[in-house]
């Protein structure tokens, strides 16, 4: 009996949590901010300054908004202005603030079958891809990037639902979509941060970037406090203020991927 109790105690000790964070908030955010490494850069600075840990659940913007709506996160950092405004309007969250922007890039095969390299007009680029019936890999997952991509097709007057064969809806996150695009040498719309950090590029390269319409603004929103425990709401407010304040903005400004700046602070002081 005693031996069994010792064994049980040893097991409990071995599996005790690595570090006990008694004070933390949960943020639902997008794969682009997590996979680019931005959170790895920001969170230690924030935690050091405030003593508040931040747990990030990185999903597509559509799912992040849903998590917020359910009251399963304290704050959101997402990128789909229309979806964000709807979220606030329906009372799921409040105090939406500009945080930063990055930009989308059109990535495609070096052989460039649609002849769009160097174009400064993303809408023209997608209509040329459609005309050439060149393979295009779409996120197809209701993420912020997917929603942005659909706006370009709409502007170009291309009905992708009717596109036979060349338009492929993957229903995957940014990384898996880039993996698939690399494997089938397809064009794909990606956020610059994920692309800069992406290692399995194979024959893909940036073909179109710099169009104003490719700018991709991120917003921070606090989740309706009635849906969250009171102490979480107060800490989430501290995060919200830090992120959009001088220190957070400076931290975003200083973030680099292989020497390249991909996120630009945008909060109005």
């Amino acid at each position: 009996m005693l031996r069994r109790m010792v064994l049980a105690a040893a097991l409990v000790l071995a599996f005790a949590p690595a570090r006990a964070e008694d004070r933390f908030i949960t943020i639902a955010s997008t794969t682009s901010t997590e996979q680019s490494g931005l959170f790895n850069h920001l969170l230690p600075l924030f935690t050091q300054a405030t003593g508040i840990g931040v747990r990030v659940v990185a999903v597509g913007t559509g799912q992040a908004l849903k998590i917020g709506q359910q009251g399963d996160a304290d704050a959101l950092l997402v990128h789909d202005r229309a979806g964000e405004d709807k979220f606030v309007a329906e009372g799921s969250g409040f105090d939406r603030r500009d945080v930063m922007y990055n930009d989308f890039v059109m990535v495609g095969p070096k052989a460039d079958p649609a002849k769009i390299t160097g174009l400064k007009d993303a809408t023209l680029a997608v209509s040329k891809i459609a005309a050439a019936k060149a393979p295009f890999a779409s996120r197809g997952d209701d993420s912020g990037t997917h929603r942005a991509e659909l706006r370009f097709w709409k502007a170009a007057g291309v009905d992708v639902k009717a596109a036979a064969g060349w338009y492929r809806e993957l229903g995957q996150g940014m990384g898996p979509t880039l993996n698939t695009a690399a494997a089938m040498n397809a064009y794909v719309l990606a956020d610059r941060g994920t692309w800069a950090n992406f290692k399995n590029r194979q024959d893909l390269t940036i073909v179109v970037h710099g169009d104003k319409a490719l700018f991709n603004p991120y917003g921070s929103i606090l989740v309706d406090t009635k849906k969250r425990p009171a102490d979480k709401a107060a800490d989430a407010k501290i995060w919200h203020n830090w992120l959009t304040g001088l220190k957070g903005q400076a931290a975003i400004e200083s973030f680099r991927i292989n020497g390249e700046q991909v996120f630009f602070p945008q909060a109005r002081q």
Partner: peptide, 18 residues
């Protein structure tokens, strides 16, 4: 990260980072 990341979810994450 550091709270609920397991072997399998870490593998999925690294795959998506390419």
């Amino acid at each position: 990260k550091g709270v609920t990341r397991t072997m399998t979810t870490a593998i999925a994450l690294e795959t998506s980072k390419g």
